[in-house]
Design a protein around this nucleic acid. Structure first.
Lengths: 246, 246
DNA sequence: CGTACGTTTGATTGGAGTCAAGTAAAGTGG
DNA sequence: CCACTTTACTTGACTCCAATCAAACGTACG
């Protein structure tokens, strides 16, 4: 979808320029000069909001673009062989979706909106072309990829060495941190994902997630009401999260 | 995995040019013209062989270079917080070590030789600079990063959804495939890592690895003698590896 | 207002971890 | 080259965390 008259008319116009986007310091164009930012801005395709449950990309679709999340949240689900679906990632505003599709030209998982979500589509060939003349942009892209690698490795550590309680603790700490970085309260937030999603992501059964949430509440670590979360004791959660298992 | 007779006989100098490297079709300079290959070649630093147990990089060291494995093998170990060490990766010839250090300028894990190993050091700033004028090289680097992401996600699926038996089966299939791609037998190879390493990587106790190996032998799936492996029934292993768990 | 879906809680089970002990293999130094 | 030490691997017995099965309860939404 290219910028159209419809786009222009909308008061959204301000919103949809990188220059004025509140996420610009977190998103890709981090360290670009105004002129460069314009060039970056010009390759981006705005999208109308995606409704909850709608798929942004389908597993196996041809890879063409990466997407920057502007608002809302998404989950990535990969189904392999006859194996059950695996929820590999949650995406929050400013995060980049689809980088794992570069290699073989197909998206390796479906990406589904967890709530009404808006994204910026960035055609990868044009992004790649821009990195040729904008070293800072290139560096930022490498960093983003590299960071995702590092986070994946943390996830592996979580899945292979941590108990169910520690996994949940890590999950809350991770979310808390991501919200804080985005300027939201690190203590009080709303989960956009179901217990089943959390369980799938952490390698736990739904029932286990529910039980441990209950236990955390009894211990006054968090207060959970439906999908509303209040972190009461961040320190205790942190301790729990990376205490050696013996 | 062992050095061929040809390797030994040849003077080092010849060996160490990308142009004549037997891995050139798998390593980075995949699709470079001769002239470009020379430019790539010129930034590479050769290293004397690394002995078994020696660390190529130490966790926390300043990130400066990535390393292409020429021969031998390595493991990457990350120690987080007070948590136990996690073996996140094994590296075989033609694979690239260190890409996860780009983001925060530090290597996120130590990389240790599992046997006598030779690597090519590629200073990242120079590699990055080269990608400015060599779009194919840039594309290849993006692909490599992206592929690693995809493999990490597979690993997560393995760690969170597969049984111990399936993990071992996947591990053997993965190795088999990697050897085949490198021109070695996919059925008969030598493990350069210990049972403990395998267990750590797959999120299993050493004892479990040992027991399942025994079971696999009874079922005539593989013949294992020490670190020597013969895959007897690849099909059965494949079936086992991605059969839904019920 | 009812149906479907998401969540909680309880009872039971099993897969893999832990502990323990023994065997094989690989270094090490005389 | 052989005794000795150390490390790697195997095997068995027992335990426990989290999965599974089952059922009730809440909540969202057409």
């Amino acid at each position: 979808m290219s910028p159209t008259a419809q786009d222009r008319r909308r008061p959204m116009l301000h919103e949809t320029r990188c220059e004025s986007c509140s996420l610009s310091s977190l998103c890709l164009p981090l360290s670009l000069e105004t002129a460069d930012l314009e060039r970056f801005d010009s390759i981006i395709r705005r999208h109308p909001p995606i409704k909850k449950g709608t798929r942004l990309v389908e597993q196996g679709d041809r890879f063409t673009s990466v997407f920057a999340v502007r608002s809302g949240s998404l989950k990535q689900i990969t189904t392999e062989g006859s194996g059950e679906a695996q929820l590999t990632n949650f995406f929050l505003p400013s995060e980049l979706v689809g980088l794992d599709g570069i290699d073989d030209g197909r998206y390796p998982g479906s990406v589904v909106a967890l709530e009404t979500t808006t994204v910026c589509e960035i055609p990868f060939d044009r992004l790649d072309a821009l990195t040729q003349t904008l070293p800072e942009l290139r560096a930022q892209l490498f960093r983003t990829l590299s960071k995702e690698l590092r986070e994946d490795r943390r996830m592996m550590q979580l899945l292979s060495r941590k108990t169910a309680d520690q996994r949940l603790a890590c999950f809350f700490l991770g979310l808390s941190d991501r919200f804080r970085r985005r300027g939201y309260s690190p203590f009080s937030f709303r989960l956009s994902m179901s217990r089943a999603d959390i369980g799938n992501h952490l390698g736990l059964a739904v029932e286990t997630v529910s039980r441990i949430l209950g236990r955390f509440q009894q211990q006054d670590l968090v207060a959970v009401s439906g999908r509303e979360v209040n972190i009461l004791d961040l320190t205790a959660l942190s301790t729990l999260a990376d205490t050696e298992v013996t």
